[in-house]
């Protein structure tokens, strides 16, 4: 039985990774054409990529956007999760529903809304608007991760600190926050990963000055197709795998999707 399952999973894994393997493989072709199998090995398209400023600029932009929105979302997410867990406000369920709504509302809908709304308020193409959208998109991941993290440790330690005379903000800063560190780092990395690969909402709302890496790839590919995009994808795969390995070490994956 177990053997049958293993066989099934091997097939499934092959199915899941097939297109990615092909793209990475193809990135090493020396020709302009897409062929698998490739005829010989070459790093031509990687050299091409690094001499191509637009992709590099976009990579930096995505990096900056990802860091800022992950940082902001982790901070907001921690505060919100703390408020939900320790404060038991009226309508806590509805609030959690609101914070995690971007998971349920189709991204296209939000993208359209942001396109129209940023135009209405005169913030179309503004970087802060893009940051705000990304924070909204990744907030559910931060809130869920940190909720799990805060629930995992009772309020007793914090309570103890406060009964010994600490103010709440000191108790939170010096007791709770360090205990949640693992959760914070997981939340941060998860948010970064999601922001870094977000394409739909960004495509709709980002102005011309802010073409993130995924949007740059989308625009590039819809107009011309050469193995540069395979090379850039291969590099993104590398970075993402590294990040997820860190996430995995922190045991974050299980916490998020409960």
């Amino acid at each position: 039985m177990r053997r049958l399952l293993t066989l099934f999973n091997l097939l499934m894994v092959a199915y899941v990774v097939a297109p990615i393997v092909l793209v990475v493989w193809m990135s090493f072709t020396p020709t302009m054409l897409f062929e698998v199998p490739i005829r010989s090995f070459s790093l031509r398209w990687y050299e091409e990529l690094f001499s191509y400023d637009a992709f590099i600029d976009s990579a930096w932009l995505s990096l900056r956007l990802g860091l800022i929105s992950a940082l902001a979302a982790t901070a907001l997410g921690f505060l919100a999760a703390y408020g939900l867990v320790r404060g038991r406000p009226p309508g806590a369920g509805a609030l959690l529903g609101l914070f995690t709504a971007p998971l349920i509302v189709p991204a296209v809908v939000y993208g359209i809304a942001m396109l129209q709304f940023t135009n209405l308020v005169g913030l179309y193409g503004a970087f802060p608007a893009l940051v705000a959208a990304h924070v909204v998109i990744v907030l559910p991941f931060a809130v869920r991760t940190l909720l799990a993290s805060l629930e995992g440790q009772g309020p007793e330690l914090e309570w103890a600190a406060m009964s010994l005379g600490a103010r709440r903000r000191h108790a939170v800063l010096l007791v709770t926050l360090p205990l949640c560190l693992r959760g914070m780092v997981s939340a941060f990395l998860f948010c970064f990963l999601i922001s870094f690969s977000e394409v739909t909402v960004t495509l709709f709302m980002a102005g011309p000055a802010h073409q993130t890496l995924p949007v740059r790839i989308f625009n590039y590919v819809s107009d011309r197709i050469d193995p540069t995009m395979a090379a850039v994808s291969a590099l993104v795969v590398l970075v993402s795998v590294a990040l997820v390995l860190v996430l995995n070490r922190l045991g974050a994956l299980a916490a998020v999707r409960k």
């Binding site: 900056r64 956007l65 800022i68 929105s69 940082l71 902001a72 709304f117 308020v121 913030l123 970087f127 802060p128 608007a129 940051v131 705000a132 924070v135 000055a209 802010h210």
Partner: peptide, 14 residues
């Protein structure tokens, strides 16, 4: 909208 964005803008305005 502007108020909510102030924090993000401070750190990230390109």
């Amino acid at each position: 909208f502007g108020a909510a964005l102030a924090a993000a803008a401070a750190g990230g305005a390109a």
